[in-house]
């Protein structure tokens, strides 16, 4: 049970009449991780989360949360997860504190404990000022916090958040993200989103889903390394093209290069090394020796966006079929 895996999913398939939402996915999540579920709309993220939250049954395959099967031991699983569905549905006619208390009682907390926990999560989610207001009168950012507070109120081991920042303004997104990061200190968190930067900022592992399959599962760092194309280096140097060309040609470490004019006398050179080695110190050394002005020197950094586009692009799909 406490073997370190909080989610174990094996060959999970969900078919609705006529179409397959999730097709034989297998993954696992370790305790204490923040895992991002990334994929375009309709990739099967929500369906997977609903199955994990025991709302929908799977067509085949197994899923376990904290060692309990989501289908046969649904009650034990539900006690251990805090789930916030897509669009964060709330009882808009209730007051914040009243709602949280109602939810705490539903989740099986006693009177004393539910009161204490409501106090804690109200504080934690920054709801103290609005705790007596009616949820329907709150802004979307606050409603999102109420949803998060609800997911936390029974001290779950695993928190599942389906698109927690959808429809928020940039400022609200930042505060909700910060809240999620804070949660991660003592909870395992599974977040779904189609906003790539969000995963990059909050998660330490990513599962990329597309058309019901998991196409990639790794840490954000590893995915970037895979994509970094052998460590291409960009250097902007003020020097005549001929001199630059001569210099790069004589350097044995460079496999091939490309020079493009930039503004003024600067030229933008893209240098690809022969092996995975880091060219930056060498380039700097050359510039110093020759007295060139160097104004930019960087290794190409791939964002998750590139990785995502690369992985889900159509020609790759043909391969996987």
């Amino acid at each position: 049970m406490s073997n370190g895996w909080i989610i174990e999913v094996e060959n999970l398939t969900k078919r609705y009449a006529g179409n397959t939402a999730v097709e034989g996915i297998t993954f696992s999540v370790q305790r204490g991780e923040i895992v991002g579920f990334l994929g375009p709309n309709g990739a099967g993220k929500s369906t997977t989360m609903r199955i994990l939250a025991c709302f929908l049954p799977a067509t085949s395959g197994t899923a376990r949360v904290a060692g309990y099967d989501v289908f046969t031991q649904a009650d034990a699983v539900r006690r251990r997860i805090g789930y916030m569905p897509e669009n964060n549905p709330l009882h808009l006619d209730m007051r914040v504190r009243e709602y949280l208390k109602f939810r705490a009682r539903l989740k099986g907390l006693g009177i004393g404990r539910s009161r204490a926990r409501v106090e804690v999560v109200t504080e934690q989610c920054g709801l103290t000022d609005v705790s007596r207001r009616i949820i329907g009168h709150l802004s979307k950012g606050y409603r999102q916090r109420v949803g998060l507070a609800d997911a936390l109120v029974h001290e779950p081991e695993l928190i599942i958040l389906d698109e927690p920042t959808i429809g928020l303004d940039p400022h609200q997104i930042r505060s909700v993200r910060q809240l999620i990061k804070d949660l991660a200190r003592d909870h395992t968190v599974l977040i779904s989103t189609h906003i790539l930067s969000e995963v990059e900022m909050t998660c330490n592992r990513v599962l990329i889903m597309h058309r019901g399959k998991i196409l990639a599962a790794d840490t954000t760092q590893n995915l970037q390394n895979i994509m970094s194309d052998g460590g291409q280096v960009i250097a902007e140097i003020a020097a005549p093209v001929a001199e630059l060309r001569a210099c790069w040609e004589q350097m044995g470490e460079i496999e091939y290069f490309d020079i493009a004019p930039s503004e003024g006398e600067y030229h933008r050179c893209a240098l690809t090394p022969r092996s995975g080695l880091d060219l930056r110190p060498l380039v700097f050394e050359q510039a110093r020796l020759r007295g060139w002005a160097l104004r930019e020197l960087s290794r190409a950094h791939h964002s998750l966006e590139d990785i995502f586009v690369h992985i889900t692009r159509p020609d790759r799909e043909e391969e996987t079929r």
Binding site: A53, F55, R78, Y83, E86, N87, G108
Partner: peptide, 14 residues
């Protein structure tokens, strides 16, 4: 319709 059915049915109530 409002979606609260999902939050209700994912709590440990039968």
């Amino acid at each position: 319709w409002s979606g609260t059915y999902e939050t209700l049915m994912t709590t440990p109530v039968s």
